[in-house]
């Protein structure tokens, strides 16, 4: 319901109840639309019931749907499979190993996480009760998201293996600028099923026409690759492999959230200032070109 919308968004673009349908058991299905300037962002179904004192409350339809999922427990991970996804023992094991690898890197015990395994984005919408979200119009119909506070990740990828989102479960213990958060997840876990190097090669191929002096200004190269994920990943890779190792990576992951924090972290780890960004990044990208 809230999504990523600031409160002010709803002052300007009031959500609308399209209709309310009476169901059985004194329940009601509310169809709610959120739009901006006539463009629909999402249409969701909320289920409301009444208690014995005639007080309304929401039914947790996702939780109800989850009871139909098949659960597989492996060490500290619990995989909850949609009926549309076949179980995959080897990919579960691969995820468990990756979880252990992250625990070692971050020097903590392996995180206990529930991995909600879904066929695709449509399956994700069906399970949480959404009729429409804008991503349903994208060419790529897979994705994922991590909810670190709840220790849950959604793998809408037809697979129990989604390393990128699992990294976010660990980076949430720190205070990274979002470039370093996504960068670390891409460095360690890839993005849209491709490793960091795949994305860096695409950025490098276009770097002569790109200006990196305005970072952290983001730019999407296509549906798969953006500067935020790619160069964020490059910074994390360089920190880990060339500029001090784990200590430097943690400096990036404890950078703070602001743009000033972003610049300060790059200065601390790489000794560069904004005027240096374009030359520094292009020099480091050169090995990925051609």
């Amino acid at each position: 319901m809230k999504g990523n919308f600031e409160k002010g968004f709803f002052f300007q673009y009031a959500p609308q109840i399209l209709g309310i349908r009476a169901m059985s058991d004194n329940r009601y299905e509310v169809k709610l639309e959120v739009q901006q300037s006539g463009i629909t962002f999402k249409i969701m179904n909320l289920i409301v019931a009444f208690d014995g004192l005639n007080r309304p409350y929401f039914i947790d339809q996702f939780g109800e749907n989850l009871t139909e999922f098949d659960a597989v427990r492996k060490e500290t991970l619990t995989f909850l499979y949609s009926k549309k996804v076949a179980k995959n023992d080897s990919l579960e094991q691969k995820m468990v190993h990756f979880n252990q690898k992250l625990a070692t890197l971050f020097n903590i015990s392996p995180k206990s996480t529930s991995v909600i395994v879904l066929k695709n984005l449509k399956d994700y919408c069906d399970v949480i009760g959404y009729d429409y979200m804008t991503f349903l119009t994208h060419d790529v119909q897979t994705g994922g998201i991590a909810l670190p506070e709840e220790q849950i990740l959604f793998s809408a990828n037809n697979s129990p293996y989604y390393p990128h989102e699992l990294v976010h479960i660990y980076t949430a213990d720190h205070d990274p600028h979002y470039w370093f958060d996504e960068g670390c997840a891409t460095y360690l876990g890839g993005s849209v099923e491709y490793p960091l190097e795949h994305h860096l090669k695409k950025v490098a191929a276009q770097m002569d026409s790109l200006d990196f002096s305005e970072l952290p200004k983001d730019q999407k190269l296509d549906d798969e690759t953006s500067l935020k994920y790619s160069l964020g990943g490059l910074f994390c890779k360089l920190a880990m492999e060339e500029f001090g190792g784990r200590v430097s990576l943690l400096i990036l992951l404890n950078s703070g959230k602001t743009e000033e924090n972003f610049h300060a972290a790059l200065k601390a780890v790489f000794g560069i200032e904004q005027k240096d960004y374009d030359a520094f990044v292009k020099e480091k990208l050169r090995k990925y070109k051609g």
Binding site: M1, K2, G3, N4, F5, E6, K7, G8, F9, F11, Q12, Q36, F41, K42, F58, D60, F62, G63, L121, Y124, I128, M133, T134, F135, H138, D139, V140, Q141, T142, G143, G144, I145, L147, E149, E150, I152, F154, A156, H164, E165, Y178, E182, A185, S191, V192, D218, K220, D223, E224, S226, Y229
Partner: peptide, 26 residues
């Protein structure tokens, strides 16, 4: 705790996250 988390799920996309949509401070 879990159910409320649903309300805070950001827009999901093939790029894992999409930018915040913001207006002026209310």
């Amino acid at each position: 705790f879990f159910s409320v988390s649903l309300l805070f799920i950001p827009l999901l996309s093939c790029q894992e996250k999409t930018p915040d949509i913001q207006t002026s401070t209310p």
